[in-house]
Amino acid sequence: MTDNQAVISVKNLTQRYGKGRLIYSGLNFDVPKGRILGLLGKNGTGKTTTINILMGYLRPQSGECRIFGEPITEIRPETRARIALLIEGHIQYSFMTIEQIERFYSRFYPKWNKDAYYELMNKLHVSPNQRISTMSCGQRSQVALGLILAQNADLLVLDDFSLGLDPGYRRLFVDYLHEFAKAEEKTVFMTSHIIQDLERLIDDCIILDYGKILTQTSVADLLRDFACYTFTCDTDTLPEFDEASGIVNPSLIRNEVELYTFKPREHVAHVLESHGISPSNMKRREMSLEDAFIGLTGKY
């Protein structure tokens, strides 16, 4: 694999739940080296499914996925050693102790950094002989994070790291991961259902809806180009905006209208006018990544 090649490359990926509902069709994305990409979506949109496909635990219906240039079904053990995996719920070998699990994994990874692991463990106030099964969810997440940091992998794949964590542990996780990924120029592919944590962490995002990709862009571009407009108008109901209008998820509460769009303000004003709506006091509202996510996917 050359340096400018994508670490993860997904082409025309199509997947269904069994023979039933389409999860997505023709999904394409690349994760370049050194980037942190977040795969965002509501529950059931296929985030974990995508991770399972990428890690070789699920054969897709069609499409091609490569990691470090190797097809995912034929990844060599040496290549697997370059990928750190966090399973949803911070699952680890819970029958091992903190010490045993470090000793176990250290044998598999040539760049193993024992100090990184123990630095994090020292913060947990747990005994080295404590079994993982007796730890809280937050403590387990730190063990999983410590192992990922110690593995010193080139690609980190994290499935819903925030699941079951309280805000403190989430923050700790994000901070450590961000510092590690940026300092070591690691590539990260992650999912989370708590979007607010990701804003400080990810460079790029893919936002999935049921059966399709809503957007695939950098977080900076998303927050720059995707806007939320609010205005008041004298109407009881909002008209149906077609796809060409570029207006998504408009809502009306009393006389206050809120709508989202990638289009410029002039375009929005023109569309509203063509529908006989005269907005007054129209403003662009500042948005967080979470606001943008809800704006794109809707509240329901």
């Binding site: 995996l85 399973i87 699952i91 070998y93 819970s94 598999f108």
Partner: peptide
């Protein structure tokens, strides 16, 4: 233990 919480994924991810 390998199958509880699909821990087998961890084992299969080992290089």
């Amino acid at each position: 233990p390998e199958m509880s919480h699909k821990r087998l994924k961890l084992t299969l991810h080992l290089p």
